[in-house]
Write a protein that binds this DNA or RNA. Structure first.
Lengths: 223, 223
DNA sequence: ACAAAAATGACAAGTTGGTGACAGAATTTT
DNA sequence: AAAATTCTGTCACCAACTTGTCATTTTTGT
């Protein structure tokens, strides 16, 4: 499921768009203020941000610039009534990827959204984080307290799987199946334990990576 | 100088757009038929294609699909009078990156063009740099700490590709595809490794050029 | 205290990328 | 046109890293 944030203060429009896009198999979170949007994005970075210009607590282009400065690859599409050239140009100047003028046809929005997502090549969950550990899937890089850590393929896959299921306990069997057993080959059960140890060593024994005895492991925010 | 092809049969519009964009430091080639466009693209792939829908010898969306099937990363922007939702949706379906309805403001086209180029990484930058390494695409020259370095064609292409994707991990496959395999010819996987070694030697083993084991390479500023 | 589960250290086999050498192709010089 | 030079792809080999496994120790829950 692809995550979208829709920053919009008019609940009617917001809900109509949300409903339409959820039919198209997106997961849409509505943010009614810029402050809430910032909060949400910091918490979890979506695949794309849809952004209204006029918000009760500020201007959309400020948020767009803020997004651009922190997440270069996170696409932003303006959705706004402000349709004259000057507005459009300044929207793009603030770092937008597309600009759609209200009122718009939902299917046009959908087409433009797909085009933007195709172009940015973003996998769902491009940015994942837990405590001080961060993955940027486009960069294929892992950071631990802002220092880049170089993981082997198996370690990277394992960490990715755990972070994609942050907050949930994942069983050893499930992990083995997903990270190793993809095409039916058998691996020793201890392989997981060993790879986990190697991962923990490289991430300096993170507290957010817990062992759930006789079940599996769980990654979760502790701070 | 960034190359654009503008596929348009109306010489008045074509020349107006060409003149405006050349002021903005693009190099615009006008193609009055789809056949000519195909020819030109096969001959030299531009940074972006601007495309009219109705052409004397066929439909723009056919060309767009053809481009998309051969050059996945070459962006296409429709410029057309056909402005209803159905047209726009089918334009995007054929693989467009943006769709601008005539008549349009030239500066809006410019903004959208920049946004598309930024996203595809076919950056308009004539000068690319990373740490002490600089490329001047006009001069076709490379400098390492202000000393000119003479690269062979393959080395230059490789460096250019890496610098155009500065900050991203590019896979070995992607590099081979882009720098060598352009028209489907096979090259040994080790060719990349060897060319990379030669490049590194000439650039005195730059720290900004990292190997990401079992993925590819990444160029990024380290200072 | 006990048994089960997980962590750990060590190791051998397997990958992967870096390296020097070489020969044919392409380009430049004579 | 011939010779010299440079470029390019390939190969064999090496070093570094990765990975799965085992034997052993430590931790954990009861």
């Amino acid at each position: 499921m692809v995550d979208l944030y829709y920053i919009e203060d008019d609940p009617n429009i917001a809900l109509a768009v949300k409903e339409y896009l959820e039919h198209k198999n997106f997961h849409v979170t509505i943010c009614a203020t810029l402050a809430k949007a910032r909060q949400h994005i910091k918490d979890h970075v979506p695949a794309c941000v849809l952004l209204d210009w006029n918000m009760p607590d500020g201007r959309g282009d400020d948020l767009c610039q803020w997004i651009r400065s922190h997440w270069k690859d996170l696409p932003v599409i303006f959705l706004t009534v402000r349709g004259n050239s000057t507005d459009i140009v300044s929207g793009f100047k603030s770092g937008a990827d597309d600009y759609v003028v209200k009122p718009f046809e939902l299917e046009v929005l959908y087409s433009r959204l797909l085009a933007v997502l195709r172009r940015t090549g973003n996998v769902a969950d491009q940015y994942l984080s837990c405590d001080g550990i961060r993955i940027d899937q486009n960069l294929h890089a892992v950071f631990c307290n802002s220092e880049e850590v170089f993981l082997s393929t198996a370690e990277y896959q394992l960490l990715l799987y755990l972070m994609q299921h942050k907050g949930k306990t994942v069983t050893r069997e499930k992990i083995l199946e997903q990270v190793w057993d993809v095409n039916g080959s058998y691996v020793n059960n201890n392989t997981l334990t060993v790879t986990m140890k190697r991962l923990r060593d490289k991430l300096s024994q993170p507290a957010c990576l817990k062992t759930i005895r006789s079940v599996g492991y769980r990654m979760e925010d502790t701070i």
